[in-house]
Nucleic acid binder design. Structure first.
Lengths: 331, 331
DNA sequence: AACGTGGCATGCAACGTTGCAAGTGGCGGT
DNA sequence: ACCGCCACTTGCAACGTTGCATGCCACGTT
């Protein structure tokens, strides 16, 4: 068995309480007692028992990240930043995948897999606002993305409307006139997709251009590929696609290139998320780059701040990362 | 506060112990008592306290995944499978990043970030065999990859020598004669890289071809890109590169294409890991596809199996996934 | 009627930690 | 010499759960 406070106390000839005081840095311990206890602590390699501390103090040191899937590059990158930031604050990150299933999202929101966590960071996919109601003694929760929770919960997001408008406007400025949007989720209450669609429509309306919206089931490469095949099969004469994720964009670009289209000469492709894949794609992918570290920090700040307050909406910075996939149509 | 066994017991007019018996499915409970207690359980929305169970039973329900970084696609995909498989077995996955730092790897091996876990799944990058010694009451640990632990620990890996030989042989069979290897780690005791290098050398030796080995700092896209720039700058006349990860390969392919090389006509590129990026790259990337689900299952099987036994070495299946990036040189 | 049996229910203790309040001893001031 | 204060130390209790041992009751058997 691992050494407990009691073992250390017995060996150092002091009470359990005093050892606890040394461990926790309580100031009222005589220097020589502290030193003696410390020596025994080192000798026995004492490590505090997390379960007992949790039971006693109510703090588990765990934060749950509830996302559709960790294998998706965007969530992977985000999880990396979250794990780093969480560690700086004395938390460990725990990953729970929902697979985008509403039922499972609800389930994990209630009690995170039976684990008692100090907080939840949730990126919902298919949850309706009603699902997001929290009990009074539930762990604090931060939403990623703009799921409409009726102002009941902390949010962290970028300004998706503005970002989508910027991408679309950029495409227009490079001379494209038939710009499709790949990614709407008409059958889900997915507020993030709705906002991006909104920005896309605004930019098109401003320029007096027609739009074409291609719904997809998920935001994977395969969905982007399917959408592009659909566009090509329909003989749609698009000269640009704005995809709601880099994964969609990479899938779409792949199919476009396979079909002999030149990117960007024949078709401009833009994505969203700025995942590393896009930077090294051929051609490199124009995308919206959210400040992922900023998102991670803001989310953890929300969980750190236990003060009673109104739920806040944190808007994190983003910028348009222009790369070769949308270079001006001047071959 | 959340309802406890005591609350339920008081309300149902039975003892705490009886409620516990109902919750845990102990058979000796009268049907009507069970029903009454169950009703109160539902009414109060009782959820077992994880901390108390952990303290009492010694089981936390947590598994730690210790990896260089979760943002890396290979680890992201693997983590996804591990999280799924872990959940099936009643475990929750916790992510700890080492950043490839040997010191931090050691630290996390000892006590995983202060969390008491039921097991560790570790993918070491820079650890020496000596670092891997475990105390008698440490949590069970499984190594991913072929870190040489002197047979002291459970391993899960694919046959890296064979896989590297297959890739190299495949490149030779498509007519390539100047095949570089990108990825060796000469300054680290990274057994996985060593095995792949071994397989590469074997295949070349068998064919009587010369080799060229390009060491890299890490396995990222940027490292692959740097390696390719180096090869080009040195005027090396290579007609194929075998990269020790898909990330390296994608970085290398990116630079090659930027420099006007045609892939695969001028240069064949092969990777390792079969991450999704490679499948949708332009051109799609030939790679070694390890059975990632198999790796996840084998790792968790090791942790599940608490029986005293000799450390085992599990070799998981792999296959060569041939795609356009290494198509025969017949333009 | 006494006894044994088996089904069911319960009280106690312990897991390792920390908040609380009380205890101890020495020292300086009156 | 006595008191009070302060620095330091300590025992008790409790967090919520479950293993163990025991208690209780009804019923069937002798």
């Amino acid at each position: 068995m691992a050494a407990t406070l009691r073992d250390v106390a017995a060996r150092a000839g002091v009470s359990v309480r005093t050892v606890s005081n040394v461990v926790s840095g309580f100031p009222l311990v005589a220097p020589q007692t502290r030193e003696r206890v410390q020596r025994v602590l080192d000798e026995l390699g004492y490590r505090p028992n997390a379960a007992a501390r949790h039971l006693r103090g109510g703090r588990s040191g765990l934060i749950a990240l509830v996302i559709p899937e960790i294998a998706s590059p965007y969530f992977g990158e985000l999880a990396g930043h979250l794990a780093d930031e969480a560690e700086k604050r004395g938390w460990t990150l725990l990953v729970q995948q929902t697979g985008g299933d509403a039922h499972r999202e609800r389930e994990l929101l209630g009690g995170a897999g039976g684990q008692a966590v100090d907080g939840l960071i949730v990126s919902p996919w298919a949850l309706s606002p009603a699902d997001l109601r929290r009990g009074p003694d539930a762990a604090p929760l931060v939403l990623l993305g703009e799921q409409d929770a009726g102002g009941l919960l902390d949010h962290v997001a970028i300004d998706n409307v503005a970002a989508a408008r910027e991408v679309t406007t950029h495409l227009i400025q490079t001379g494209r006139t038939r710009i499709a949007a790949v990614g709407p989720q008409p059958h889900l209450s997915n507020a993030t997709a709705d906002r991006r669609l909104e920005g896309y429509r605004e930019a098109l309306a401003e320029a007096g251009l027609p739009g074409r919206e291609v719904p997809v089931a998920r935001l994977h490469r395969a969905d982007g590929a399917a959408a592009m095949r659909e566009l090509i099969a329909a003989g749609a004469e698009v000269d640009a696609v704005f995809c709601f994720s880099d994964q969609l964009a990479l899938g779409a670009m792949h199919v476009a290139v396979q079909h002999g289209l030149r990117v960007p000469a024949d078709l401009a492709v833009a994505g969203f998320d700025d995942v590393e894949d896009g930077r090294y794609a051929n051609p490199p992918l124009t995308t919206v780059a959210p400040d992922k570290v900023g998102i991670a920090r803001a989310a953890l700040d929300c969980l750190d701040d236990r003060s009673p307050r109104e739920p806040a909406r944190h808007i994190v910075a983003h910028h348009l990362e222009i790369r070769a996939s949308t270079a001006a149509d001047t071959v």
